[in-house]
């Protein structure tokens, strides 16, 4: 077998694995809102900023994967039990790393991410400065 064929075979194997879904019904709160609208709003806001572990690039609020449903149920059950959303995020980060959260904290690794908009805005103002001066003349 040529190497590229080999990699295609591996890709097919991997894709069947990720497509496999269980036949069990979704978890209790996977697709069911919480009774208390205030708690549901909290849960929804958190779910939109947590990354799906299977379809990486979607939030768990958007994903149809079984595991995303189970994560939504976990989030809603814990919110229902009175846990703070940031505590649930911390619990997941403890297990999966910062990767699982779409809301990056301010730390040495991420400060360019937060500083970039300000720096770009300042650079833009500085560039535009010359133009404004020209018009006034």
């Amino acid at each position: 077998m040529r190497p590229w064929r080999h990699s295609i075979a591996v890709l097919l194997l991997v894709s069947t694995a990720t497509l496999a879904q269980s036949s069990l019904p979704p978890a209790r709160y996977a697709n069911t809102q919480l009774e208390d609208p205030r708690q549901e709003a909290e849960a929804k806001a958190l779910m939109e900023t947590l990354r799906c572990l299977v379809c990486q690039g979607q939030s768990i609020a958007d994903s149809d994967a079984d595991l995303a449903g189970d994560m939504r149920s976990l989030v809603r059950q814990r919110i229902k039990a009175g846990e703070r959303p940031e505590a649930i995020r911390a619990w997941l980060i403890e297990r999966y790393g910062e990767w699982v959260s779409y809301s990056p904290p301010l730390e040495p690794l991420t400060w360019p991410l937060w500083a970039a908009p300000v720096v770009l805005l300042l650079a833009g103002l500085w560039l535009a400065r010359g133009r404004f001066r020209l018009k006034r003349r």
Binding site: D70, R95, Y96
Partner: peptide, 15 residues
């Protein structure tokens, strides 16, 4: 583990 809750507690993301 019918709702993957222990799997999530382990930091596991697949089978």
């Amino acid at each position: 583990d019918p709702n993957s809750q222990v799997q999530l507690a382990l930091g596991s993301s697949g089978v």
